[in-house]
């Protein structure tokens, strides 16, 4: 998966956790889950679990700590998927 495909897949994961339709429509790399999408912090855990299931990767605590934006999350997914493949 390239970066664009990862971000597209990520959008589908994120959608159910935000009620801000306008912000969802404008998701890009710099979107912040809490500041921009008003996602409840307890739901960030669901996003992490959904990402693990969808991409078949395991997200350690240090990686999870960075998962506050689309960009950081996409980077972690790319990095972990690559490690899996290798």
């Amino acid at each position: 998966m390239n970066k664009e495909e990862i971000i597209e897949a990520l959008k589908t994961i994120i959608e159910p956790y935000s009620e801000d339709a306008a912000a969802l429509a404008q998701i890009d790399e710099n979107t912040d889950f809490i500041k921009d999408l008003k996602i409840n912090s307890a739901n960030l855990v669901d996003i992490v679990l959904d990402v693990e299931e969808k991409f078949n990767i395991e997200i350690d605590n240090d990686s999870m700590a960075k998962m506050l934006t689309v960009k950081a999350t996409a980077e972690i997914i790319a990095q972990k998927s690559k490690a899996n493949a290798g």
């Binding site: 409840n40 307890a42 739901n43 855990v45 669901d46 992490v48 679990l49 693990e52 605590n61 999870m64």
Partner: peptide, 17 residues
């Protein structure tokens, strides 16, 4: 709201936080 918004019984949920 927490009851409908979050399912903490979901597998691995508690272990993450």
């Amino acid at each position: 709201l927490a009851k409908i918004q979050s399912n903490w019984r979901r597998k691995n949920y508690l272990d993450k936080i």
